[in-house]
Design a protein around this nucleic acid. Structure first.
Length: 428
RNA sequence: GUGGCUGUAGCUCAAUCGGUUAGAGCGCUGGACUGUGGCUCCAGAGGUUGCGGGUUCGAUUCCCGUCAGCCACCCCA
């Protein structure tokens, strides 16, 4: 075997591409329902676009190199900085709130494993220019509606919602210092996967004592808006900090999506630029990685483009989603697109078939025919394998009678149809 | 980037203790079937056993390296 795609990159055979396209089609359909407009940007960007604002996490795994002009460039690992630049450049002219979506191919240089390649496609939906929590709720609702459009219900997937402001306020209120916050975030993020002892050790290393550590673990266990609110009520500025989260949860409830939504403060998200609500969507079995993740990033556009615009957005990749769809056997069949397969009985029927094919194709009808002389049975076999809905058979008898035999390949029923009708694409 | 496990036909897998020409099912091609597909039967094509080296009379099998995949870290789109 020679010649393989690079590690973490995929060759997409027709069946797989049809599957991916069906995912894209659903994404676009739901985005349309929510009033979003599609945009795109370059797959290759200046390295600085990522090194400055996205945080170390992303920079470590950039696909970066120098181009022939000596410019330091990187394949885009995420779409948000590009979006921030584009919006920033026309910030004055665009009517707010801006609702844009894109389906970029993104790249990261990291060791691949299941659900995680070096390249993937990701739906990005962002609302820009609206600081109110209904924008956050709108996007969380969109992620849920996308999953519903794929046939998933509340027993299949769940959105877990948190707010960094809530986490901050609770932790600072419990006596942690600003400097200890990143470590506390890290521990909360890992609290479901890493044993408590190891976590306690991490905390003690940055000087977080027994009492504060206990509070950190308690915060990580909060799982409802009521318990979060109760905890917030005990600290300074707590009510105010929890307002967004309360509004988001209430709005999603009003939309009838409560079953899909849970408050979960262990959702932290790695990217440095998130400032408020953050959320992720998981399969209920938690077998796979997050299906989608996003949040509010109110400062990014100012930092990149110097324009003050609050934003909230999410990304949903095609890899984990695709695995979930395949696992649930909801894979869309790659059905043949052929309207008709033309069958020439003998060699002298080939010319009429070519003529008919050309005419039908001019009318936008998808047809195929055998490219060499073959027995009828072979031709019908090919027609069936192609998923053609019908075969149009032309032989000496048919030509004499100025008809064609139209055979329904699903039922096996066939009838004679006048050639004048068949030429117009009328098969019955 | 670190560690563990695994690599045999397009796919799923088999091959005794290290033994001769590496097999099967599915798929693909052709035939039985000369104007009617799906079923059945027959045949064929398809392999550097991931790659390179070592041990051995002999390696798919044992050893080393390397590459790739999976898993766990790291980290998370």
């Amino acid at each position: 075997m020679q010649g393989q795609a690079l590690p973490g990159f995929r060759d997409s055979y027709p069946e797989e591409l049809a599957f991916r396209n069906s995912i894209f089609a659903t994404w676009r359909e739901v985005a349309r329902r929510y009033g979003f407009q599609e945009y795109d940007g370059p797959p290759l960007e200046p390295l600085e676009l990522y090194t400055e604002k996205s945080g170390e996490e992303i920079v470590q795994q950039l696909y970066a190199f120098e181009d022939k002009g000596g410019r330091k460039v990187a394949l885009r690992p995420e779409m948000t900085p590009t979006l921030a630049r584009m919006v920033g450049a026309r910030a004055q002219a665009l009517k707010k709130p801006i609702r844009w979506f894109s389906i970029p191919q993104l790249f990261r240089y990291e060791r691949q494993q299941r659900g995680r390649l070096r390249e993937h496609f990701q739906l990005n939906m962002d609302i820009i220019g609206e600081a109110g929590p209904l924008a956050d709720a709108e996007l969380i609702a969109a992620t849920i509606d996308i999953m519903r459009a794929f046939g998933f219900g509340p027993t299949d997937v769940q959105a877990r919602v948190s707010d960094r402001r809530v986490l901050r306020t609770l932790l600072l209120g419990s006596g942690l210092t600003e400097a200890q916050l990143p470590t506390a975030f890290e521990v909360i993020d890992k609290s479901e996967r890493v044993p408590g002892e190891a976590l306690a050790e991490i905390l003690s290393k940055v000087g977080i004592g027994q009492r504060e550590a206990t509070i950190v673990f308690e915060v990580a266990k909060l799982r409802s808006i009521e318990t979060v609110s109760a905890a917030l009520a005990k600290v300074k500025g707590g009510d105010e900090a929890g307002e967004s989260l309360r509004t988001v949860i209430a709005a999603l409830g009003t939309m009838g999506l409560s079953e899909f939504v849970a408050v979960d403060l262990t959702i932290v998200r790695g990217l440095a630029y998130y400032t408020g609500i953050v959320f992720e969507l998981f399969d209920r079995g938690k077998e796979l990685r997050a299906i989608c993740g996003g949040g509010r990033y109110d400062n990014l556009i100012r930092e990149i483009a110097g324009v003050d615009l609050p934003c909230v957005g999410f990304g949903m990749g095609d890899v984990v989603l695709g695995e979930l769809l395949a696992e649930q056997r909801k894979r869309v069949e790659a059905s043949g697109q052929l309207d008709a397969f033309l069958v020439a009985v003998g060699g002298e029927d080939v010319a009429p078939v070519l003529q008919l094919a050309a005419g039908l194709r001019d009318r936008g009808i998808a047809v195929e025919y055998a490219l060499r002389n073959q027995p009828i049975r072979k031709q019908l076999e090919l027609a069936a394998a192609r998923g053609a809905s019908r075969a149009v058979i032309i032989g000496p008898d048919e030509r004499k009678a100025k008809v064609a035999v139209v055979r329904d390949l699903k039922t096996g029923k066939q009838r004679k149809v006048a050639l004048t009708k068949v030429r117009k694409g009328v098969f019955q």
